[in-house]
C-alpha cells in the first residue's frame, strides 16, 4: 500500500476537519478525492504530502509508520510532491523555477538544461523557458507547476484541484498530462476535485469525502435547514424558509440535508391537492451525463435531478418548461 491511515483525526480549534477511521491508497494508480468545498480534501492532501501532521492517528507510507517527532520528514517529502490549487511561482524565470528542485538535489549542472527542456516539452511550454514566471496565466502557471513537480522525480504527485482555475483548453491539456505522468512515468497520482465528471474521467478509483469523513457517494443537493414539528406530529425540514420537506426521522433543530438526485421523481402534472413533498418548478438547465440527463429545476431553491433520456423524451421537456418534482422522504438524507 502506498498510503494507509488509521483513526486519523485533524482538529482545528474544536472542529474536526478530518476524521477518517481507515483509508488506504494503492500505488501506481490515479485516485480522485471527491467532495464539496470544506470536505477536508486539501488538508488530507497536505497530510499525504507530509506538509501537515495529523492531530492524532497514524499514517503509513509503504507500510512504514510516518514519524512526525523526529526530523525525518524531508526524506519522505523528497519522494512526494504536491501541486497546489493556485500554485505559486518564485519570482525568477520559468527555467529557474524548474531548476530549483534540481539544484536542491545537487543534480549534475551539465545535465540540468536537458531535463528542463524535456519537462517543458512535456507540458508544451518550451518557448516560455526564459519568461518571467510571475507573468503567466492561471493555466500556464499550473502547467509549469506540474513540470516543476516532475523535476523532483517523485514517486507520487498530489494535485489539489488541478483544473479549478484554468480555462477549458488548459483543462484538457492538464488532464492529458496527468494521465501521461501516471501511465508513462509510472508515478502514482492523487488529485482532489469537486467535479464528479472530472473524477470519473480521470480516476481509477474515487474516494468520497464529506465534512472530513468518508462517504459512500458524493452528496448532492446539499442544504442547510431546520427540522420542525409538523401540525400532525410528522417532522419536516424547512429549507431557506421556502421549502417544506417531510422527513422520516430526525432530531429537532438545525441540520444539513442532501437530496439524492436519482430518487427525485419528475412529472408534468400533479394531483390535486399535490402529494406531500411535491413542488412545482421551472426547468432551467439540461446537461447530458453518461446515459442520463441532469436537469436543474428551480423550485424556490435550485434542485438537481437525474432522469433517463427516455423519460425526458416522453415528457418532451425543454428549458423553461414547468414541471413537478416529488422528493420521497427516503431520498432525503440528514448528514
Amino acid at each position: 500500500m502506498l498510503y494507509e491511515l488509521n483513526n486519523l483525526k485533524m482538529i482545528y480549534g474544536k472542529r474536526a476537519v478530518l476524521d477518517l477511521p481507515h483509508l488506504s491508497v494503492e500505488a501506481g494508480r490515479i485516485v480522485g478525492l471527491l467532495g464539496p468545498n470544506g470536505a477536508g480534501k486539501t488538508t488530507l492532501l497536505e497530510i499525504f504530502a507530509f506538509l501537515l501532521g495529523p492531530t492524532s492517528g497514524e499514517l503509513r507510507f509503504h507500510g512504514k509508520k510516518v514519524d512526525y517527532e523526529n526530523n525525518r520528514l524531508r526524506e519522505l517529502r523528497r519522494r512526494v510532491v504536491i501541486v497546489q490549487q493556485h500554485p505559486i511561482m518564485f519570482t525568477v524565470t520559468v527555467g529557474k523555477n524548474l531548476e530549483f528542485p534540481l539544484n536542491i538535489r545537487k543534480f549534475p549542472k551539465q545535465k540540468r538544461e536537458e531535463v528542463i527542456d524535456e519537462l517543458l516539452d512535456l507540458v508544451g511550454m518550451r518557448e516560455f523557458k526564459h519568461a518571467r514566471a510571475h507573468n503567466l496565466s492561471g493555466g500556464e502557471t499550473q502547467r509549469i507547476a506540474i513540470a516543476r513537480a516532475l523535476a523532483c522525480q517523485p514517486e507520487v504527485i498530489l494535485f489539489d484541484e488541478p483544473t479549478a482555475s484554468v480555462d477549458v483548453e488548459n483543462q484538457m491539456t492538464i488532464e492529458r498530462i496527468v494521465r501521461e505522468i501516471n501511465q508513462e512515468k509510472k508515478i502514482s497520482v492523487i488529485f482532489t476535485t469537486h467535479d464528479m465528471n472530472q473524477a470519473a474521467r480521470l480516476a481509477d478509483e474515487i474516494v468520497f469525502l464529506f465534512e472530513g469523513r468518508l462517504a459512500q457517494s458524493t452528496y448532492e443537493n446539499i442544504f442547510s435547514g431546520q427540522i420542525l414539528p409538523g401540525e400532525n406530529g410528522d417532522p419536516y425540514c424547512l429549507v431557506q424558509n421556502t421549502l417544506k420537506l417531510g422527513v422520516n426521522k430526525g432530531n429537532m433543530g438545525p441540520v444539513r440535508i442532501a437530496i439524492d438526485p436519482n430518487a427525485i421523481q419528475v412529472s408534468q402534472t400533479a394531483d390535486e391537492p399535490p402529494p406531500p413533498n411535491s413542488f412545482k418548478g421551472r426547468l432551467v438547465q439540461l446537461t447530458e451525463e453518461k446515459n442520463k440527463v441532469r436537469a436543474l429545476v428551480d423550485v424556490g431553491v435550485p434542485l438537481s435531478v437525474l432522469i433517463s433520456k427516455k423519460e425526458l423524451e416522453a415528457m418532451s421537456l425543454g428549458v423553461g418548461s414547468s414541471i413537478w418534482l416529488t422528493c420521497p422522504p427516503e431520498s432525503i438524507e440528514i448528514i
Binding site: 510532491v81 504536491i82 493556485h86 530549483f100 528542485p101
Partner: peptide, 14 residues
C-alpha cells in the same frame, strides 16, 4: 505568501 514556504518544502528544500 504562505504558499512559498509550502512550495519550497514540497519541492524538497530543507
Amino acid at each position: 505568501d504562505e504558499r512559498y514556504r509550502k512550495t519550497a518544502m514540497t519541492l524538497g528544500a530543507n
